[in-house]
Design a protein around this nucleic acid. Sequence first.
RNA 1: GUUCCAGUAGCUCAGUUGGAUAGAGCAGCAGCCUUCUAAGCUGUCGGUCGGGGGUUCGAAUCCCUCCUGGAACGCCA
Length: 576
Amino acid sequence: MLKQYVAEHFEPYIPEWHAADILNVLEIPPDTQLGDFALPVFTLAKLRRKAPPLIARELAEAIGDHSHIKVQAVGGYVNVFLNRKEALRAFLEHWQTVRARYAEPTGKGERVIIDMSSPNIAKPFGVGHLRSTVIGQAIYNLYVKHGYEALRVNHIGDWGTQFGKQIAAYKRWGQDLDLDRATVKDFLDLYVRFHEEAEHDPALEHEGRAWFQKLESGDLEATRLWKIFVERSLKEFDRMYARLGVSFDAVLGESFYNDKMDAVIAQLKEKGLLEESEGAHVVRLDDEGLPPCIILKSDGTTIYATRDLATAMYRHDVMGGDWLIYVVGQEQTLHFRQIIAVLKKMGYDWADRMVHTPFGLLRFAGKKLSTRRGHVIFLEDVLDEAVARARAIIEEKNPALEDKEAVAEAVGIGAIIFNDLKNSRLHDVNFSLEEALNFDGETGPYVQYTHARVRTVLARMTDEDRNVLEEALPRARSDQDSPYLYTLSTDPAWALIKSLDRYPEVLQEALIRHEPSVVARYVLDLAKEANRFYHQERILVQDAALRLPRLYLMQEVAKVLADGLDLLGIPHPEQI
RNA sequence: GUUCCAGUAGCUCAGUUGGAUAGAGCAGCAGCCUUCUAAGCUGUCGGUCGGGGGUUCGAAUCCCUCCUGGAACGCCA
């Protein structure tokens, strides 16, 4: 908003640009000494065929100093110094409306379907699935915040040849397993053993395939076992989702689309897109510069591409999705490009509104995790360790805290989620437990701590303070000489005001880029400024002219911190 | 081999329509708790922005090339 304020002031002096153009180029100087904002004039210098420093000087002179904005030419920049009291009046006025929501409702109710999490049955919910889950949830929150109607879909991996293997392994070595109490760990042991033994026993692969065929043809025993795998696994997944605070609007396994693929194949045939190649049936995508997309394997069975085509059509036609978002690892980038290309060849323009939002691979000790070798890290173990760590720190630093266990859970899990969201999602992550469990510096607990510390101060407000606070700022807005404005003009307070002011644009950028880390970074910045303020300015002082505006500022900071943490799916206890 | 992603301080990373002296955190070192939570704050150390060319008044950012790591590249998802 403050940027807008400057842009409007500058507009009359720069005939080449509208306020929107100015808004676009205005930046925040690297050092606050240089001003609140800066206008680089290099492109303007090009238009006017003059040296940038000259333009800057001329422009600064033309604009001149006003009571509410002062300018200064430095090199190729016009630096802007706001009169803090004047700018605060404008800010407070504006903020009064912004604070209800922070984001512009740009979505206008469009329906967005987000494919996220999507773990595989009978496989552990590993730290790898955490990424899709928390990134997806954050993107969902961003869409909702911007006025979209978003739906989260969990596309469970509940079908495929691996279930044949799973059943075969169970039949051979799992007979004494109590299926009512079996865990994913038990299933994993069987799966790993299958792959170990299959190396010197080729008959196993045949058994696996045979069981999958039985499953596909509705064999009773195979189906019974498959259902048990599904139920037991979902139960464990739900435990993870509950701890992560994630829920879904639809949980539809891949098997849900089993009866919807024939129609896809028929359409492809009808449209003349299906070709036989090396025994398989494919859609050629040479004109897109892509390898062909396999629709039917040489044995006539379907493949994941077929399933994903049916899934996309279902989400568009039945679920009414205007946008289809896929929060799926970057290793599937080619696959999604193919799927989108096939749908477009089928004549579906809506495929242009399918967006693959990829993220980097998660490694451990530099190695890719391999389920087959049992090389996995259970998310639950990581969460438990994080919570234990949080518990120990609370015991050490704040043993009198109420509700210690709940707070430990919030902080431990907050640390893990934040750790995954703070970096740009495309980066490969070399998972380090030590790093994930660090609670100092740029971490979730740092933000939670800051929030809690501010909330604690706010909790000490008297009722009278609370009442005055409701009216104090409206009065300050209309009163030029309000002492409140003066209190909010000190360096640490002004820095916080400028940070708060940025929040709406931060939200918009995070949404456009599908990048939760933008919010995470912002929340860290704001927390840092808040800690600085907290350290430099005492809030609960006698003098109401100091106390009330500081309380107001803290109230707004806490609100934005909480809002940002909510977006990231991280809890924010009142005390920690 | 082809395509895509990445390479910035010892480590993990910001820096996205090209702009001021390249910024944080961790680790290290030095300070700050009789004052609202020290999970904090302050200071300090630390850089051939992978290498080399080019475009530009100006390049971590754009183009070319090479090096390194990773991923994908037809019957797994």
